[in-house]
Design a protein around this nucleic acid. Structure first.
Length: 194
DNA sequence: TATGAGATCAACT
DNA sequence: GTTGATCTCATAC
């Protein structure tokens, strides 16, 4: 074993979402001991027309308006769950959408929940990731530095690619998607190099 | 490899 | 009544 990875706590998230998002690439996310290395995220901010918080606080997005370091979970297209990490200070309504993991821990549990064995697609996409890690609305508003969540800073430098976000119809041009260029575990490749 | 439809529901207009 | 920060399966090349 090498050095013990640094555990990410609330101060880590209490910064600009555009600082936090790229730094999450390469970090390790576990939910109940199941998870892996974050390889793809997207940043959202309340000044951003594509963000849920853009039109102000509602019952659904209330967690985004709270303090940093909490999980914001919402239902997407009536079917999937999507996991976000709330960033910046209270009222800033910024969050990072976790889009893809490289599976590392709890492969058997993930395969059982996803009913598939293909490691590349176990967590390649926000909906898939939540299914593999058993993240549901019940995790909405949970602290990220308390069980079942566990987050660890990356231990090695990674080259972070940026590009346009996926699946949105507003502010499409903002390059607020970050990830490991060329990773086999992305929901979709980054344009340019790969 | 690419494109398209269906699934399914809560928020929002 | 319409719209998604999506995924899967089917069909077409």
């Amino acid at each position: 074993m090498h050095s013990t990875p640094e555990r990410l706590t609330r101060p880590f998230f209490d910064r600009s979402v555009h600082e936090v998002a790229p730094e999450l690439i390469g970090a390790t996310l576990l939910v109940g001991g199941v998870g892996g290395v974050i390889v793809e995220v997207e940043a959202y901010h309340h000044t951003d027309p594509a963000a849920h918080s853009y039109r102000g606080r509602t019952d659904r997005n209330a967690v985004m308006f709270g303090p940093a370091g909490y999980a914001y979970v919402y239902r997407s297209y009536g079917i999937h769950w999507c996991l976000n990490f709330v960033c910046e200070g209270e009222g800033s309504a910024a969050a990072v959408l976790i889009r893809a993991l490289q599976p590392v821990s709890g492969l058997a549990a993930m395969r059982r929940r996803r009913e598939m064995s293909d490691e590349r697609r176990l967590c390649a996409g926000p909906g898939r990731l939540c299914e593999a890690l058993a993240v549901t609305h019940g995790h909405n508003g949970s602290r990220l530095d308390r069980p079942p969540f566990a987050l660890y800073a990356r231990t090695e430098a990674v080259e972070v690619a940026a590009g346009p976000r996926i699946g949105i119809s507003k502010a499409v041009e903002r390059p607020w998607r970050y990830g490991v260029a060329g990773s086999r575990f992305l929901s979709r490749p980054f344009k340019g190099r790969g």
